[in-house]
Design a protein around this nucleic acid. Structure first.
Lengths: 138, 138
DNA sequence: CTGGATCCCCGTAGATACTG
DNA sequence: CAGTATCTACGGGGATCCAG
């Protein structure tokens, strides 16, 4: 592998990944970012750095455990940077990296779609439930 | 809570579809579409109808249970239509609805991002692990 | 045979309590 | 304040069984 620069390797790798194959790296990455907490955390960090407690408050319903875990994974994947300020009390800020910012557009689109189509989904659910409940009461 | 100023009402309405609030409908929808199987199934259906067995084969690694469950939810949410052809053996086709198609762009963007940034993520993981393992070997 | 439901096991999310 | 530790419970995965 010495006769190939990192850039060349990356360029080649780009075209070899099909997210549908089970053990394909791109699928692993896709599964990682297709996670509800990942989506929400990334969206929460879209407008600047946030402290742990801020995220915890903003993402009502997330447990500290899952928030910590999600942030660790995002940090490991290079999407989020973690900055510890050694004061009393300790202050920890999380911020999107450049790589993290590059994921913002897809996530924002997803979030926008969700907020846009709530009525459609609800209506579909009601129709489905109505048709299904009717079948049950026979 | 009956006494609410117009300003307060406007402020609340603004956040009515804010995906960060725990019990907000848009958050529920966002959580639903931020699911690895949802993403993969929706992507698999992007280029036309697919039979159950086709999906099962294409999405290597998915259990029949999760595939069925995911498809049911997507059908209930109005993103996918289910067509049963009463032949022998039975043939069941799944196809994107108009609503489902409207979700294609966000999902394709997500998938493209994953396939594009595999090298970046891998590199970040290696750096993180290296830095972290170093701390462990003390 | 295809599509799917059901049962059981295990991993992981989630709530709580505790610590640097 | 920002986590870790522990326990429980729910949900995913595989095997098996069922209907058409």
């Amino acid at each position: 592998m010495p006769t190939m620069t990192a850039a060349q390797q990356r360029e080649q790798a780009k075209h070899e990944f099909d997210a549908f194959l089970a053990d394909c790296p791109s699928r692993v990455v896709l599964e990682r970012i297709s996670d509800k907490w990942v989506t929400l955390v990334m969206a929460s960090l879209s407008d600047g750095p946030r402290r742990f407690s801020e995220l915890s408050r903003r993402l009502a319903g997330v447990s500290q455990k899952m928030l910590t875990q999600t942030l660790r994974t995002l940090e490991r994947d290079g999407l989020v940077s973690r900055t510890v300020t050694a004061s009393v009390p300790v202050r920890v800020d999380y911020e999107l990296t450049d790589l993290g910012h590059s994921l913002q557009d897809p996530i924002k689109l997803l979030k926008a779609w969700a907020e846009d189509h709530v009525p459609d989904v609800r209506e579909a659910q009601e129709r489905y439930d109505a048709a299904h409940d009717a079948g049950k009461n026979s």
